[in-house]
Structures are given as C-alpha cells and as structure tokens.
Amino acid sequence: MQPVTELLSRLEATPLAVFISESDWAFPAIEAAHVIALALVIGTIAIVDLRLLGVASAHRPYTELSRQVLPCTWVAFVVAAITGTLMFISHPVNYFENTAFRIKILLLLLAGVNMLVFQLVTSRDVAQWDRAARTPVAGKIAAMLSLVFWIAVVFFGRRIGFTMLPA
C-alpha cells in the first residue's frame, strides 16, 4: 500500500490537482459536468436495457436502437471518466481510502464485465431476435444486471461526498 500512497501524494501535488482543490469554482464545475455526463450514460444505457427487457421501444429492432443510442453513451462516458479523474486527483489519497469510492469503482468494473459478456457472447445471435419483442433470457439477465450495477454506481457515488474525510 505504501508505494500507492506515495504515488497518490505526488499526484495530489501536481499543479492541476492543486488548482482544482484550491479554486472556488473548478471542483463544483467539474462535478456538475460529471452529473450531466453520468445522467446521460445511465439514461441511454437504460433505454437499451429496457428494450432488452421488452419494457420500452419493444417494436424497434435492437441493433437499430443500440446503433443510435450507444454512441451518445460512449461520448458521455468519456466526459464522465475525464471529470471523474479530475475530481479524483484533487484529493487522491482521501478518495483511495474511501470505502464508498472503492465500491463504486468495483461496480463500474462489474458493469463493464457484464457489458463485455453481453457483447461477446449473448448478442452473437442477435440476428435471430433483433426484431422480436421477446429477447433471450441471457439478454434479459444482462439488462437487469446492467440496471442494478448502474443504479448502485449512483448510490455509492453520492455516498462518497458524505463520507469523505475533510481534506
């Protein structure tokens, strides 16, 4: 753990990190952009998940819908990742030691693995159910897991702000 803490301390001393933590407006501005980006990430992922579950957009071909929606998800994800990294480097040691932060990162990884399994395994036979309102059980499970992971990401993300040690 020691080398990690040392690396994080050095990160905290970089001019960019010092600027973010000392400026009056930088952190709130980055945080606001993070909220907007993550709202778009989760909302657009939910549109695809709800299609897989047959709750909404059930009449639209799955590939057509996801080809339209998922580029928005990725753009928003890049913004969320950049703004998240900027917030992290302002107090990297405190974030690293924060339990809610660690759980959130773990949940993000789980959401990523779930997405990979769906893309590489479940959606291989998409041609067979693309236009069907009913999707395979594996697709429904992936959609449920995705919704659960992302909702949990929001809960633990918001918890970070309430459990961080005063910097």
Partner: peptide, 21 residues
C-alpha cells in the same frame, strides 16, 4: 438525504436522456 439525492440523480438521468433523444 444521500438516498433522496441519489434518486434525484436517477430522475435527472431519465429527463436529460429523454430530452437528448
């Protein structure tokens, strides 16, 4: 309060994504 704020953020996701579409 954190719980209410989290639900608030999830609802923001619904509104912003619908507006975007």
């Amino acid at each position: 309060i954190p719980l209410l704020q989290s639900v608030h953020i999830l609802a923001i996701a619904m509104v912003l994504s619908s507006v975007t579409m």
